[in-house]
């Protein structure tokens, strides 16, 4: 039963890489967006700190 599922009727070498690639694209999207936001927060914090030190 399980081996039938994994073999996908003989199309396993196409079906699983297809789902794997789609999963990788979704994971990359999440990772890249979070990394971008973390970078933007860091740059904003630095800019604010520099502005505060210039004001003093």
């Amino acid at each position: 039963m399980m081996s039938n599922f994994w073999s996908m009727g003989g199309y396993a070498r196409y079906v699983w890489p297809c789902f794997g690639f789609a999963g990788a694209v979704l994971a990359w999207n999440l990772w890249a967006a979070r990394r971008l936001l973390a970078g933007a927060r860091l740059r904003s914090a630095r800019a604010l700190a520099m502005a505060a030190s210039d004001a003093r």
Binding site: N29, L30, A33, L37, A40, R43, S44, A47, L48
Partner: peptide, 15 residues
Amino acid sequence: VLCTRVQAEVLNRER
């Protein structure tokens, strides 16, 4: 993902 990226883009433009 759009929400997260928009937050980053807005921060970059409004630093």
